[in-house]
């Protein structure tokens, strides 16, 4: 729709809230899906309590919430493959890569800073 320049824009989403307790996780996911529809280059970064969004085995029906983990499982179907998890956040919460609902790149601080530095926009809700 627009020119080449806009197509080269990269949006980084920082997901740093736990799911269900507040709306931030879902709002970030909805932006990811919208950006994917517009074929934007996207980094989806999970850090802090945001890593809890990726934990497998979520059953939120009983609290009348839509499952976030199940939606995150479908990211790849939407062409969103640049999914990053901050390694220290994961490990400091007693989680391992095998417990996550989707494939993600585990990254350290320096790689994270680099991703941000290469982004056109950063959305951190």
């Amino acid at each position: 729709m627009d020119n080449d320049i806009s197509n080269k824009q990269t949006i980084s989403l920082i997901a740093r809230r736990a799911p269900y307790g507040s709306d931030g996780a879902r709002q970030t996911l909805d932006i990811a899906f919208a950006a994917a529809v517009f074929e934007k280059s996207l980094n989806y970064i999970f850090i802090g309590d945001g890593v809890f969004q990726l934990v497998a085995g979520q059953s939120p029906k009983v609290i009348s919430s839509k499952p976030l983990g199940a939606a995150l499982e479908t990211l790849e179907l939407y062409g969103i493959s640049e999914v990053f998890v901050h390694r220290d956040s994961l490990l400091s919460r007693g989680l391992t890569e095998s417990q996550l609902v989707c494939r993600a790149f585990l990254i350290e601080d320096c790689a994270l800073k680099q991703l941000i530095a290469e982004s056109t926009y950063v959305i951190n809700l």
Binding site: S6, I31, A34, F38, Y121, I123
Partner: peptide
């Protein structure tokens, strides 16, 4: 409107700031 209008606006912007 939809979130597409946010993404579209970003394509035509130089800066984005969020407040929450």
């Amino acid at each position: 409107g939809g979130l597409g209008q946010l993404i579209e606006a970003l394509s035509n912007s130089d800066r984005m700031l969020s407040f929450g």
